[in-house]
Design a protein around this nucleic acid. Structure first.
Lengths: 362, 362
DNA sequence: CCCAAATGTGAGCCCGGTCTCACTCTACGC
DNA sequence: GCGTAGAGTGAGACCGGGCTCACATTTGGG
């Protein structure tokens, strides 16, 4: 029942020109609104274009302008609310400037990330935003820089790369959060992050381009240091989820001679796993275990008790990466600074005085 | 410190050909692995390509093959976990077949959706997946069909369009869910959906390509009918959120001479708003109000009480749209059937016997 | 009134691949 | 020994816009 043409050939400028009885060049000028065109010709061309329902082939256009009006975004997991919210910030900002977005999901795999970056380069995106899965394998990111295509990092900075990164400033808030735990009486505090173990934490103070996770750790260390207490290194678990599932880690943290009395989840996905585990173990918050998480998801304050969180402006962070990228694309030179956003501790009800009889519970 | 070339010109086949001392045609053949090429030439070309770090320009390639190995996805809101999870299904499936994805967010706005579809057509995507915001304005979708480019719908079918759609089968589960509420003693059941008011519910039985929301309504109606009870039309609120915020709707539903004793949220974003409102009103679930939601988000079972939900395989639904689309792109003819997935009622603790003294509470 | 300068127009090259066509050279069949 | 199938090769057309250049026509200043 649809139009007779099952696969109609695309209408080109040449077709429009023929219809309007002018040269291809004139048609192109009228359509592209550049150069000198008489009113007479312009209206004929526009009319012809309307009749034929002409639509420019963006591929062809991109090919010789060299710009595709497309941004590439590489993230670990769009399912993660952090990324989907940041993605909206990116998407909204890009759209406002007439840019589209190619999204590639890597599953937090560095190989996939390198591949993704290659593909985007081959597709000639005008620039890209990457949330690097690793700070160790960054060859592919250096390639991007060397190719001359603008790059902006999301949530994590990579020292020496020389590109901007947008993220929340976490050190002071992490310090405040852990101090809050210590003040409440906790000394055995567990921290769980999916981030790879690396030298993130080396000289966090002097490192110009730090990142939110190393900052969290640094803040935590500083808090213990200030309180004059030993840092519970055995309760800090990075690279969680990859080899060992979160629920096992939680059980480990809560077992042994000196179990954790409080657990900090470094993102909302981990938080969900931790909470499920605690529920399965029939442990209550905060009576049996205190709990705190990063990222203020809407459900956090609906829980009983409501969860104490460290909130950060995720949407804005996403939007900032896009803005920085677009600025570069539109000509401004890259300033490899970190765009820092404030984070804040939101105290709710999931932190209480430590329970010492916990060992019998697990 | 990076490579000396600030903006190195891209290496082309011609460059490789020159380096390998063969013609452009031969280089292209060796690189593209087609036609007849001697081993001698092939290895020279491959070596040259490696030395020069040749990378094909996908734009140029797409332009004359006509295929871009790119899929377009148009959704209302990636921030909505339903879409971000479906997106992962799409993304994973596409990637497995070497396709990339351009994501466009419309904010559930039909104008933006039409615009998005245009842009994707202009960018010459090989096919697209759309979660239509409206079933009334579908001109732009008909345009896609007429352009001959494959199209698959996500979560909502549009009768007469003649394209496949993937979604969960909701009628029986909705019937079961509402019957469950009725059996528990509820007669005043509120239903809140962001979907536009339209004639979704017209002849739901005979309509070949129905959709999850009309099915929910139909199932609800059938349940009331079977129970021999009047349908509380005044408590059914579509187009929620657009003019009137959810929290006002909730308050309205719970006021008046005959308030709702149970509320059903048609997606997890609405659920969050409803739960916040109930919390602010200091109403407890299920003692004051019973509550049920569509989509089994991980936090639903962490709530106290855990929320009764209607679960659907969102990831699989997303993956199915991508599969159907790729099948069409790869040659199979479109079969405009709905790909139906099972949904199921998961009874937890958020539904109790109705509270009759509610009127005094709000 | 004459020679710019400005404006309008068309032909044709370019981007970087794919692919057709014509041609050479070898090998095989009769 | 000759015809021919087929591999191997190069020249160049082509995809669909952008844009430069050369040329024609109008305008305006001195």
């Amino acid at each position: 029942m649809s139009a007779s043409s099952p696969r109609r050939r695309d209408v080109t400028v040449a077709d429009v020109a023929r219809e309007a009885k002018v040269s291809k060049a004139q048609a192109a000028r009228a359509l592209g609104d550049y150069g000198a065109v008489s009113d007479e010709v312009r209206s004929r061309v526009l009319a012809a274009a309307a009749t034929l329902e002409y639509r420019p082939n963006e591929l062809a256009r991109s090919m010789n302008t060299g710009r595709s009006k497309t941004l590439g975004v590489v993230v670990g997991d769009i399912e993660n609310p952090f990324f989907s919210l940041a993605m909206r910030g990116i998407s909204d900002t890009a759209k406002a400037q007439g840019f589209d977005v190619i999204l590639i999901n890597t599953g937090e795999d560095v190989i996939a990330e390198a591949e993704a970056v290659r593909v985007l380069l081959d597709k000639r995106v005008d620039g890209m935003i990457v949330a690097p899965a690793s700070q160790l394998s960054t060859r592919h990111l250096h390639d991007v820089v060397e190719s001359g295509r603008p790059l902006v990092l999301l949530d994590r900075q990579i020292p020496g790369l020389g590109v901007p990164a947008a993220m929340a400033k976490m050190d002071d808030t992490a310090y405040e959060a852990v101090t809050h735990l210590i003040d409440t009486g906790h000394t055995r505090i567990g921290y769980i992050s999916t981030l790879e173990a690396g030298n993130w934490s080396s000289s966090p103070e002097t490192d110009l381009g730090s990142n939110p996770v190393s900052e969290r750790l640094a803040g935590m260390r500083r808090a213990f240091h200030t309180a004059g207490m030993p840092i519970p290194e055995d309760l800090i678990r990075l690279s969680a989820g990859k080899p060992q599932p979160i629920h096992e880690i939680v059980q480990e943290l809560l077992s042994g001679p000196s179990p954790a009395t409080a657990i900090v989840a470094s993102d909302s996905l981990i938080a969900l796993d931790v909470l499920h585990t605690l529920q399965n173990l029939n442990l209550s918050i905060p009576d049996d275990v205190s709990f705190m998480m990063y990222d203020d998801m809407p459900w956090a304050q609906l829980m009983r008790p409501p969860i104490t969180v460290v909130a950060q402006p995720v949407y804005d962070i996403g939007a900032a990466t896009a803005e920085a990228l677009l600025a570069q694309i539109l000509g401004q030179p890259a300033k490899p600074e970190s765009l820092l956003f404030p984070s804040k501790l939101v105290k709710r009800g999931s932190i209480g005085v430590p329970n010492t009889r916990l060992r019998t519970l697990v």
